[in-house]
Simulated scan of single mutants.
Amino acid sequence: MRGTGIELRDARVHYGPLEALHGITLSAPTTALTVLLGRNGAGRTTALRALAGTVPLSAGTVVRDGRDITHQQAHERAAQGLCFIPDRAAVFPSLTVAENLDLAAGDNARALDAYPELRPLLSRRAGTLSGGEQRMLAVSRALLTNAGVILVDEPTQGMSPATATRTYALLESLDACVVLAEQRLPPGLREGAGRTAIVHVLRRGEVVFSGEPGELNPARSRYAPE
């Protein structure tokens, strides 16, 4: 495993007058699969964007492998091996599937082995794909970039259950710090199978639980309750 991981420390984020994160602290060690769990509006997507650098902190710090990267721009973090896959606009719609894969600068065969459904679509423009196909293409970036930190917002949105299960297994197997933002706890994590997992439940911009999936109240495994 590479590095020690990525953290938010006392992080606050504002969208205009609205404070979306209220001084939260959470860590995502490289040795674990980290899940940011919460309903829409809970702050999980904002936390992921703060780690990626696509939204600035109004207070607090972002720390990667013990270094303060708070003031690094998103493109600088990407150049240093951070891969961010947002929930929307995660592919280049006017480019073909093959061209999207080429931009990841990895071995396309690895992505196509993981998602053989993409093979007959290589000449198609990404914008014409279904939602699940676009997510497969987007997640392929995580397989191809050899990034040390991989942040994915709702990786299996629109996928069939079988493809979603395969996707979680792929992300879990990566030699990287992997952080997922989800509304529901991914299947299999509660049972403790495979890689160690850490869950941070967010509600209204605050962390209300941090721990292992087995410690999580079942009522919170879908989302942070009101």
Rank of each mutant, 00 (worst) to 15 (best):
R2Y: 09
G3P: 04
T4S: 14
T4Y: 09
L8S: 14
R12Y: 14
V13Q: 15
H14A: 14
Y15R: 13
Y15Q: 13
A20L: 09
H22F: 13
H22D: 06
S27Y: 10
A28R: 05
P29G: 01
A32M: 12
V35F: 06
L37S: 02
L37P: 10
G38M: 02
G38N: 04
N40E: 05
A42N: 05
R44G: 11
T46E: 05
T46Y: 08
T46L: 08
R49I: 00
R49W: 06
L51K: 07
A52Y: 10
A52W: 08
G53L: 02
G53Q: 04
L57G: 03
S58H: 12
V62R: 08
Q72R: 15
Q73C: 13
A74H: 11
A74C: 07
R77A: 00
A79R: 12
L82V: 06
L82C: 05
P86G: 06
P86F: 03
F92S: 05
F92P: 01
P93I: 05
A98D: 15
A105G: 10
G106M: 02
R110E: 11
L112Q: 03
L112E: 01
A114P: 00
Y115P: 00
L118H: 11
R119L: 08
L122T: 15
L122E: 11
R124Q: 15
R124I: 13
T128F: 08
T128P: 08
G132W: 10
R135W: 04
R135Q: 14
M136C: 09
L137I: 10
L143R: 00
T145A: 01
T145I: 05
A147C: 01
L151K: 02
E154I: 02
E154L: 01
E154N: 01
G158C: 04
G158S: 06
S160D: 04
S160E: 02
S160V: 05
A162V: 15
T165R: 10
T165I: 09
R166N: 07
Y168R: 09
L170H: 09
L174P: 01
D175T: 03
V178H: 00
V179I: 06
L180N: 00
A181H: 02
Q183F: 00
Q183N: 03
R184T: 14
R184Q: 07
R184V: 11
L185Q: 07
P186Q: 04
P187G: 13
G194F: 04
V199Y: 06
V199N: 04
L202T: 11
R204D: 14
G205D: 06
E212V: 14
L216W: 03
P218F: 09
P218A: 08
A224I: 06
P225E: 11
E226K: 13
